[in-house]
Design a protein around this nucleic acid. Structure first.
Length: 476
RNA sequence: GGCCCCAUCGUCUAGUGGUUAGGACACUAGGUUUUCAUCCUAGCAACCGGAGUUCGAUUCUCCGUGGGGUCACCA
């Protein structure tokens, strides 16, 4: 059986788009599932849009998510000779031709066609130039040209896609598209096909936006005498308004999600379920389970709206799980959390313990845990619980202060602390709220926070007693 | 506009020629509780329309409608 080889082929123009991540993931999953290879190919044939360092950043992001490419990373800019050779072969077979039309002429043509409500299309101006004429033009210095593919007349192109099925298009609807640009770089269409062939790609898995150019590609494969790979077009990722997912309507850069503290587990898991499903009720998948269960047949056709809400849920879920498992991954999480606690890195584990069940992404702990590191500001009436009065509050705080002071460091444990506070309420006929509420506000300065015993434990005896004393002063 | 693709709760989706159309997120209510979050329970909520095929269509076919993609010397 033929070796499975997939590729992810981004152009290095900036960040990694979340939709591209999904494409990369599906390529990765399918390759790994079949013991195949997942190849990264940098499509840097547009010298204008190329961004310095973007290719390295792309690779780094992929690897940080665990999607490590196999083999050498290819850059199309290093393979120009290959494309030129392919183009020349087509010209000599009469399947492509040099075109000397200026971009001004093409612009004009397009404008006229649009004004006349015609479909913008190359008019074939250079398609029928005589051999002599071509030779002469080629010789004259400064006469720039491109190479165009000669779309055959009156044919129907049949294409087959694993997701979308059979698609057929009349060649009269196709344009003599450019293969080689005036700067001698190939266009996407040529480079892509030459590369997929020479690199032995068995399955071309890419976004649905490529579906309209599939017939062109099929024609090119045939002209070049290459066998066809399998094609798998993935349904688009959508904005809430159903348009193609884009910046402007929210984050789309994977790097930004990572910066905010979204975990690789959550990012991959969520994105895997956009346009694919396992056919069961299972929703939580680690990468190995995805590799095991992924299948091209379960990819669906309709676009999927990218919903940050659900991503948040996955991320929160993984954070909670990692914390409760308290394993190696938990240590990594603590380390990562330190990045959000400048100057208070030591508090990362405490912060995570306190707020792990309260955050969607790690960067949120920065704000939530701020009160741990500085004295809270609040008003005296915040200390008073519901219909209780400040006298009761004063009593509750005093009793708490007394009991807590008696606990030695060794007994300063979550369980003891909680018991201590409960006992006070019980012994003095107070409601739990009369004790827990003011102590909690005294410690945190907030009306919403983790429970006082948790905060007491984290703050330690000295700091805790200090804060309660300050609260008592506030009441006066 | 030409060409192409698509259509189940608000969102991601399962599903079948006969189902109480299932799950998850979000939302609402209740429980636990000192607040918030977690956790538990319950609830709300969908087959775009028409015609045809059929004993019977959400499911198959056609048409319509709606949405999207694409029409570069960008990928």
């Amino acid at each position: 059986m033929k070796k499975i080889r997939t590729r992810f082929a981004p152009s290095p123009t900036g960040y990694l788009h979340i939709g591209s991540l999904r494409t990369a993931l599906f390529n990765y999953l399918f390759a790994k599932q079949n013991n195949g290879e997942f190849i990264l190919r940098i499509e840097d044939t547009d010298q204008q849009r190329l961004v310095e360092g973007a290719a390295d950043a792309l690779l780094e992001t992929l690897e940080s998510l665990g999607l490590r490419p196999d083999g050498k990373i290819e850059h199309q800019s290093n393979r120009l000779a290959l494309y030129e050779k392919a183009a020349n072969k087509l010209i000599s077979k009469g399947l492509a031709y040099p075109c000397f039309c200026s971009s001004e002429r093409l612009d004009r043509l397009r404008q006229e066609q649009q004004a006349n409500k015609q479909v913008p299309k190359y008019d074939g101006h250079c398609r029928h130039l005589s051999k002599d004429e071509v030779a002469q033009r080629l010789k004259s210095v400064g006469d720039k040209h491109v190479v165009r593919f000669k779309i055959p007349k009156d044919q129907i192109v049949q294409a087959k896609d694993i997701v979308y099925g059979k698609i057929s298009v009349k060649t009269e609807d196709l344009d003599d598209f450019v293969l080689i640009k005036t700067d001698n770089y190939p266009t996407y269409h040529l480079a892509n096909i030459v590369d997929d062939y020479t690199m032995g790609i068995s399955h071309v898995i890419r976004g649905e936006e490529w579906l309209p150019s599939l017939p062109k590609h099929i024609l090119l494969y045939q002209a070049l005498g290459y066998p066809l790979p399998e094609f798998v077009h993935l349904p688009l990722l959508l904005n809430p308004d159903k348009s193609k997912l884009s910046k402007r309507q929210g984050d789309v850069a994977v790097e930004d999600f990572i910066k905010k503290g979204y975990l690789p587990e959550a990012l991959l898991n969520y994105v895997a379920l956009l346009g694919w499903n396992p056919g069961t009720d299972q929703e939580l998948f680690l990468i190995n389970q995805l590799i095991e269960q992924f299948s091209l047949e379960k990819i669906n056709k309709a676009g999927a709206v990218f919903d940050v809400n659900k991503l948040n849920w996955f991320n929160a879920e993984y954070i909670r799980r990692i914390i409760s498992e308290a394993g190696e991954r938990y240590q990594q999480l603590i380390k990562q959390s330190q990045g959000y606690l400048q100057g208070h890195e030591d508090g990362a584990e405490d912060a995570l313990k306190l707020f792990g069940s309260r955050i969607n992404h790690l960067s949120e702990i920065s704000e939530l845990s701020a009160f741990l590191f500085k004295l809270p500001a609040y008003t005296a009436d915040m200390l008073v619980f519901k219909k209780s009065d400040s006298e009761k509050t004063d009593q509750g705080l005093n009793l708490s202060l007394g009991s807590l002071a008696k606990l030695n460091d060794k007994d300063w444990t979550l369980e003891n602390l909680n018991q201590t506070l409960e006992d006070i309420a019980g012994k003095h006929g107070l409601t739990p709220g009369d004790i827990f509420w003011p102590v909690r506000v005294a410690l945190s300065g907030q009306e919403k926070s983790p429970s006082p015993s948790e905060i007491l434990e984290v703050l330690g005896k000295e700091e805790s007693l200090n804060r309660i004393k300050l609260a008592l002063n506030k009441l006066k």
